[in-house]
Design a protein around this nucleic acid. Structure first.
Lengths: 214, 214, 214, 214
DNA sequence: GATTAAGCGAGACGGTACGTCAGGTCTTCAA
DNA sequence: TTGAAGACCTGACGTACCGTCTCGCTTAATC
């Protein structure tokens, strides 16, 4: 009885999910090869053995296509846990991870993710889940451990971290400014630690990288 | 006697500085019209009644040309002084100015400045001087007034402000996240004020927008 | 018992003749709208609410489809009879009719009929029957009347007319050369009349527009 | 003194005539290879090592390009003279030449020439001059010889021939109708000879292929 | 004052990518 | 099996910029 169908299939031949997956794999591959700027619809079509209309049918801009490719990356996670025994150590380790990521990636790609993906909470969440702690967000257990050690009040929030770290580090990376260990220590000591210790106000604004737009 | 000439003029007809100024004016105009992405050498050449070789002779990339245009903007300054009577008030006013700027400007242009210009200390300095307090940097007198009122230690530095404010605000703007008054208050209360009060460490790293790469 | 069936109906759903008629109507309509060159399978499919495979199943080329559409036009005829009282008058009237037709029609359509349709005797016949004397062929009664008046021998044939008139007039039309009354008179006086009067040779070759390939 | 310059060169780099010649050579070559329909801008560009804009700069349609290619063919002429000793023989020889041409050429190309070139007197003239008697026009010496032999009046014109022959033969060729020797004899005997013998009227209309639009 | 080397507007040029369109074929579901 | 819908590959379309080049002219500094 047809009233059971919430939404029936659209008419016509459905899109081939295999094509889609194959294409996005090529996009991922090409991002590594030629970078974001060098990526073109033409090139993707050639390498994927697909036609341009097939691409345009799915994504109308390069950005959309790249974002889809990133979202389609397998969510493996790196399983890393952060626990150095002190809040300061944990923070520095997180910043170190982020620094590594930034150092290795194409800045234009980072820029894309920044501009395209960060306004998309799902993508953000996906990135965090798929790649493990990226250093862009403060994992809840780090906060908990710090509270257990008495380094932070029980109700300390991650706002200061989430908001500040990603924005500053990425901005520095994009502008070829240094974000070496010395810099990171200074950020921890003169901004993050004071801010985290103080902040007891309930947060109404999610951090930039928290994946949830208020 | 030729040894007097430090560097002799190259032979042939010298470049016409008027052409240069006229072209850069067109660039500035076009940036407002079509944005950074939409700007092309072709378009500049057409609008300026110049030829492409004339442009390429001067700037080999679009970025170079745009940076030159921005640097060539007249340095008027807005002459505004910040003095509300309290550090918190001053900070909020500065953030308000920055918010206005971000709200009014083409995000692509901001992005350009971020990517192209901020790695250039001179350009950064120029922007600050030409447009007055932009809110991206903490004016020295604000610090001084706060110290006089006893709100901050004498040796308080602007690192926390310079580093955090520009990066977070611009990043939010680029990603269409809100940076309204509520957000700005939270940034002031839970990050800036605690950080400024604490930071007595001598700063080795200039803030992102301070115009001096360490 | 199935051996009784001379030809059994093919299995499966039979073709809907209404679809066919509707589609051809659309083709006729589109020929007027966008001309032969502008006609595409896509467009026909869209306008007819049909799918491309439905079209391709019936006609494998655009030409086939157009010919089918023309053949499907209702055979009304204009019932006009030619009888001015003199052979010269009759010929000029026929040429006048043809000239009108050529003047009113899309040259591309004429070209189509020329290239696509005229090699198809049935189509040719159909056109003549459906639209009455087109001027492209010499009606038998004109010849008869002329013979009765003694203007032509009894055995005069229509070869010279059929062969020459259509070809010259259409060619002129296609090439934007004039085929006005002066021209038509000259054609009659210096070609058609002398030829018709002389030709007593039994004809082995049907005229171009006679609809019968020898 | 500049007033001597009737028309000064247009500004900018002039088009390279070598490129043009090379491209048109490719067009000619491709016409033989893939025919008119199969000819594309893409293909010409590839084979000529030119870019599409370079082609479009010169000719905005395929037809224009092809006509230019034909016009650019070297005007060698075949030097053939028609003189069999009788008018009938001469006419049959001319028709034979035309039949050969039609048989060997791409019908679409003929169609192109018909539609594109024949409305262009210069092109028409060029074709006649470059390829010798094509059979599409009646050479003046054939008329003269016939008059000398007394087969035709001194003032006989070529209207009947020029007008009739090209149109009928080409039309038959385009429609895959036969134009074999039997047909050609019939055309000569029952149309051309009677018409030529009679026509003494001064001609106001140039024949289709005479290269002069009235 | 003549020479010379460069600046300059204009635009050709080979490329490359754009985004769209049509051609035919194939797949899905419903009739 | 038909039929509507539409995915799909192919390949051409005509346009836009790219960055380089070739023109003929103009403009200074040098000879």
């Amino acid at each position: 009885m047809s009233y059971l169908k919430e939404e029936s299939r659209p008419p016509g031949r459905p899109r081939d999910p295999h094509r889609e997956a194959a294409i996005l794999a090529v996009v991922t591959e090409l991002l590594a090869d030629v970078g974001y700027e060098g990526l073109t619809f033409e090139l993707v079509a050639r390498r994927a053995g697909a036609s341009k209309p097939t691409l345009y049918r799915r994504w109308s801009t390069k950005r959309d296509m790249v974002v889809a490719a990133i979202r389609a990356m397998p969510a493996t996670g790196n399983g890393r846990t952060i626990d150095t025994g002190s809040l300061r150590g944990d923070l520095l380790e997180l910043l170190g991870i982020l620094a590594e990521t930034l150092a290795s990636s194409d800045t234009a790609l980072v820029s894309t993710l920044l501009q395209a993906g960060l306004s998309d909470p799902e993508l953000c969440e996906h990135l965090e889940v798929s790649t493990g702690p990226s250093g862009a967000r403060l994992p809840a257990e780090v906060l908990r451990h710090a509270a257990e050690r008495g380094e932070l009040p029980r109700d300390a929030g991650s706002f200061a971290y989430d908001e500040v770290v990603g924005a500053t580090m990425v901005t520095r990376a994009l502008n070829a400014l240094p974000y070496d260990e010395g810099y990171r220590e200074q950020l921890v000591d003169s901004v993050l630690l004071p801010a985290l210790r103080t902040a007891a106000t309930p947060t109404h604004y999610a951090g930039i990288f928290s994946g949830r737009i208020h």
